[in-house]
């Protein structure tokens, strides 16, 4: 057993907080992008003409069969090649997470849309709304309300998954801790500290989601 020495944590708190900030930034941007793209994918899959739903199903199932780490490596390789110039790890990671999470969000949103009673859409169309209007004003608001807890739970998973940017050296919370741990030779305190922070944030988040779920159910 080694003696604990928490000064490595306290001395490097600003550096660690920068990492945590990047983790939040990546989570929120990928969440917004993923939900927007996921909504578009879900609507197209449910209502577009023939080859489109099949293509989207291929995209969604293909990404869901791949490990996230491999997707991150792919985009780390592809984005600079596609743009013809080097970009930082952040843009390629953001694109990877947005496209990857969109596959998962779109499945949640598709189920949410399918959960809205058929009569709602029929009534909207019968009263003269276009399909887009019916989606925008009638179906989606009801669907989102019902699936909000699942979307938020998926976002907590996304928050945890962003730690994988470690593999491309992007300085998120975990990578920052890793840098300090190997420089100051205090891996025990460092990893216990970030595990505790993750646990508090995620357990707090899922507690809030459960409360929200109960309120929505009433």
């Amino acid at each position: 057993m080694t003696e604990f020495d928490w000064t490595a944590v306290t001395n490097n708190l600003p550096f660690l907080m920068q990492g945590l900030f990047l983790t939040f930034q990546l989570t929120i941007l990928a969440m917004v992008g993923g939900i927007l793209l996921g909504t578009v994918l879900a609507i197209l899959r449910l209502s577009a003409p023939a080859p489109v739903p099949q293509l989207i199903a291929g995209y969604v199932n293909g990404l869901r069969a791949m490990p996230l780490i491999l997707v991150i490596f792919w985009f780390y390789l592809l984005v600079p090649l596609a743009l013809g110039r080097p970009v930082g790890a952040f843009p390629s990671a953001l694109i990877a997470f947005t496209l990857f999470e969109a596959a998962y969000y779109s499945e949640i949103i598709r189920a949410g849309i399918q959960g809205v009673a058929r009569g709602q859409l029929q009534a909207a169309l019968a009263s003269g709304l276009s399909y887009a209007q019916a989606m925008r004003y009638i179906v989606l608001p009801q669907a989102f309300r019902a699936m909000l807890p699942i979307l938020l739970t998926q976002s907590i998973i996304l928050f945890q998954d962003t730690s994988l940017v470690y593999v491309v050296g992007l300085r998120d919370f975990l990578t920052a801790a890793n840098i300090v741990a190997s420089r100051d030779q205090r891996p025990v305190e460092m990893y216990l500290f970030i595990a505790a922070v993750y646990l508090v944030l995620c357990a707090g988040g899922s507690f809030a989601v459960r409360r929200l779920q109960r309120r929505l159910a009433r």
Binding site: M1, Y166, L174, P187, L192, A195, A203
Partner: peptide
């Protein structure tokens, strides 16, 4: 369940690999 779900899997890998051997008897 709460503890294992609340910490990212990658952090668990680091905990088991770097932290646990140090906390056990020598």
């Amino acid at each position: 369940v709460e503890v294992f779900r609340g910490i990212p899997l990658l952090v668990w890998f680091f905990l088991w690999f770097f932290v646990v051997p140090e906390l056990l008897p020598r």
